[in-house]
Simulated scan of single mutants.
Amino acid sequence: MKGTAMKGFPALTVIGIADGLIHWQIFFVLCSAIGVKQAAGNFAAFCVAAAFSFYVNVLYTFDVRTSISAYLLFISLMGGLSYGIGSLADTHNLPGLLTVAVFSASNLLLGYCFFRFVLFRDQRA
């Protein structure tokens, strides 16, 4: 079980870095160049980055099919978190860099746990 848990870690790391880069770029374009509020920008950036990472993880890391309802659950939970962090930043006039840094750290930890222990829990056996 220990070897199985770490099998996909290098792929998850690369995909996570790409996910973060996509998220940060979209967030800063939306918020800085277009003037979208951080809550909306963080949510939109998350949705695009999450679609990328979910698709790539299913294809290359976990090599299993998952249901659309599981994908929607993931998007809902993490999307709500992204919007919430952005809303707090908007309310307290926090810099965008802090918003994406806090969300990226949260997304890394919670996203990995969600993929590994919820979406693809049957694969651990």
Results as ranks from 00 to 15, higher is better:
61 T>W: 00
84 G>K: 00
88 L>T: 04
79 G>R: 00
106 S>G: 14
98 L>C: 13
47 C>P: 07
69 S>H: 03
113 C>L: 12
104 S>A: 11
44 A>M: 03
75 I>M: 15
31 C>Y: 11
101 A>D: 01
117 F>R: 08
54 F>C: 02
106 S>E: 10
99 T>A: 14
114 F>K: 02
36 V>T: 06
82 S>E: 06
103 F>N: 03
46 F>D: 02
58 V>F: 08
71 Y>P: 01
66 T>N: 00
96 G>N: 02
112 Y>E: 07
61 T>C: 02
62 F>M: 14
30 L>N: 08
43 F>H: 13
80 G>M: 07
91 T>H: 13
85 I>A: 12
93 N>P: 06
46 F>T: 05
76 S>K: 08
71 Y>S: 02
95 P>K: 04
117 F>E: 10
58 V>W: 11
66 T>K: 01
81 L>V: 15
43 F>W: 10
85 I>G: 05
91 T>E: 11
35 G>S: 00
107 N>T: 08
44 A>L: 05
93 N>D: 15
45 A>G: 14
31 C>G: 11
34 I>C: 10
53 S>Y: 05
89 A>Q: 07
101 A>V: 11
110 L>N: 07
36 V>K: 01
84 G>S: 01
63 D>P: 06
81 L>Y: 01
64 V>H: 05
107 N>H: 13
71 Y>R: 03
99 T>L: 07
108 L>T: 12
91 T>I: 13
95 P>G: 07
106 S>R: 04
99 T>E: 12
31 C>I: 11
32 S>C: 09
112 Y>V: 13
109 L>Q: 09
64 V>E: 13
87 S>L: 14
92 H>Q: 09
99 T>G: 10
62 F>C: 14
54 F>A: 07
78 M>I: 10
86 G>S: 06
90 D>N: 03
80 G>K: 13
63 D>L: 08
30 L>H: 05
76 S>P: 09
95 P>W: 05
104 S>E: 09
33 A>S: 15
81 L>M: 10
86 G>Q: 07
98 L>W: 11
35 G>F: 00
80 G>H: 05
106 S>M: 11
